[in-house]
């Protein structure tokens, strides 16, 4: 009886660890996730741009900075940019909540390592990220990057690719 209880306990622990590891993996790999993007708007960007600070996570600080840039574009497309620094909130470029599923092939290509998304990141501070913007965690780094993204060009690219609707589509 005692042996059965011990075996059951070991099995339950293994199951919990495996489910947790699986969910963490999915969370980190999922570019459209609304849960792993932290943003702080820094101010009103120049014409056609958005200026904000965004966080990324990775084993190395450099990787976290790259992840942050991807998060910046992902947030502009799927989540929207919150108000702050005198700027009003910017709604997400896609109004369809299932856009990432409907256009999965497009987004997989767009967000791949070194993908086209980088074309819309104008300016970032990843080279000098340090101090309070680079936090050493148990299994890696959490790094904040101040980015300026070319929001208008990104919107036009997604419109031309048929991923989002134009304001005047249908008219």
């Amino acid at each position: 009886m005692k042996k059965t209880i011990q075996l059951a306990t070991v099995f339950m622990l293994a199951l919990i660890v495996s489910v947790n590891a699986q969910s963490r993996k999915e969370l980190k790999a999922y570019y459209g996730s609304q849960y792993n993007v932290e943003i702080q708007t820094l101010g009103v960007g120049n014409d056609g741009t958005k200026l904000f600070k965004v966080w990324g996570y990775a084993k190395k600080a450099e990787g976290a900075a790259i992840e942050a840039k991807r998060n910046a574009i992902s947030a502009a497309i799927f989540k929207g940019i919150p108000a702050g620094g005198g700027a009003a909130p910017t709604p997400a470029l896609t109004t369809d909540i299932n856009a990432e599923v409907k256009h999965q092939a497009f987004f997989d290509e767009f967000f791949k390592d070194g993908g086209k998304y980088l074309q819309f990141v104008n300016l970032s501070t990843d080279a000098s990220a340090g101090g309070s913007d680079s936090v050493k965690m148990k299994k890696g780094y959490k790094v904040a990057v101040a980015v300026s993204i070319n929001f208008v060009a990104l919107r036009k690219y997604l419109e031309e690719s048929g991923v989002i609707r134009k304001l005047d589509s249908g008219f």
């Binding site: 960007g45 120049n46 014409d47 700027a87 009003a88 910017t90 709604p91 929001f151 304001l167």
Partner: peptide, 8 residues
């Protein structure tokens, strides 16, 4: 610039 995206 701050308000037009929200408006649109």
């Amino acid at each position: 610039l701050a308000y037009m995206d929200e408006f649109n």
